[in-house]
């Protein structure tokens, strides 16, 4: 019996969400009195033994260039073989676009119950119960998994990491896999920007910013803080900002350490996507804006006057540290 963590990479680099999954997997392993292993598909640019820093004992690496290109059908076939040969009892994924495509397929292959969007370690006092986010962040539910093999996909930023200096053993893994049916025509990565789903700090603008020409107030602060940028739905709908920045109930749901909202009213559908953020700051000129009820800090004021001063203060802070 062991725990298997699926590590996913972007251009050969391990993603932040995968480190969280690795650490979470190691915690699950110690709850169950077993070891956490990891599996990596495709060529890697990094030394995979550093997964030991996150509590992984052994990394199974299937280093094949055909696997650099993600295909849920191919990946789930390999993972299913790996789970059988390693006698895996719990499989851990990150709840990102890749995890969402592979984990459910593996669930069907192995007849293994899946909880996606987990936010805490499983509770074992009464079966195997996992807490997950539901109603778009407005509530949680406790889900019991009844099958022998269990699959959990972990929400990003839900679980903080404590690193060690341990090193993992890296071994080769191989199995047969089907041919892909997908022919990739092009990929278009947003480079130089912090990926929104994984960002620690998010600076977000709403219709109160009046027009795309004013977004410098958002991007300048974001650059200073190494933050990602986001926006409310109408802002994406009227093409002031790209669709992938739209957060909320019908956009991306995020849970950064700091969510900084400028000129956003805080409609219930917007809050649904951001209310798991640890600290929320709201800048809005309307003291009645609903967002203040969900905020930790706020300024009632005109963003066009307040933001330049905030940017100056952050510059000062950064120059001191």
């Amino acid at each position: 019996m062991s725990i298997l963590v699926f590590i996913d990479q972007s251009e050969g680099q391990i993603k932040k969400a995968s480190y969280e999954a690795a650490y979470y997997g190691a915690q699950v392993a110690s709850l169950l009195g077993t070891e956490a292993h990891a599996i990596v598909l495709g060529e890697a640019k990094e030394d995979l033994s550093i997964l030991g820093n996150y509590g992984i004992k052994k990394v199974h690496h299937f280093s094949k260039s055909e696997l650099n290109q993600f295909d849920a059908q191919v990946y789930s076939a390999i993972l299913s073989d790996a789970c059988k040969s390693l006698n895996t009892s719990v499989v851990i994924f990150s709840n990102n676009t890749i995890g969402k495509a592979v984990a459910p397929r593996l669930s069907v292959k192995l007849k293994a119950g899946l909880v996606s969007g987990a936010v805490a370690l499983p509770e074992l006092s009464n079966g195997f119960v996992v807490k997950k986010s539901v109603f778009s962040g407005k509530a949680f539910t406790y889900v019991s998994i009844q099958s022998n093999i269990k699959i959990i996909s972990l929400n990003s930023n839900a679980f903080s990491i404590v690193k060690s200096t341990e090193i993992a053993e890296v071994v080769n893994f191989e199995s047969a896999f089907p041919n892909t049916h997908i022919n990739v025509v092009s990929t278009n990565k947003v480079t130089g920007e912090v990926p929104l789903a994984e960002a620690d700090i998010v600076i977000s603008g709403g219709r109160g910013l009046k027009g795309p020409e004013n977004w410098g107030l958002v991007t300048e602060l974001a650059t200073l803080l190494g933050a990602a940028t986001a926006c409310s739905r109408p802002v994406a709908d009227i093409h002031w900002r790209p669709h992938h920045e739209h957060v909320g109930q019908t956009g991306l749901a995020i849970a950064p350490n700091l969510y900084f909202a400028i000129g956003i009213s805080g409609a219930i559908q917007h809050l649904a996507g951001v209310n798991r953020s640890k600290t929320i700051v709201v800048i809005n000129k309307d003291p009645e804006a609903p967002f203040f009820k969900a905020a930790d800090y706020g300024i009632v004021g005109d963003a066009f006057e307040v933001m330049p001063k905030i940017i100056d203060a952050v510059k000062k802070l950064k120059s001191q540290s």
């Binding site: 019991s144 798991r276 969900a294």
Partner: peptide, 16 residues
Amino acid sequence: LTSVVAFELPPAKAGV
């Protein structure tokens, strides 16, 4: 393969 055991609301914010 799974069943819902219970729900929970998030803790209320302390106030802005």
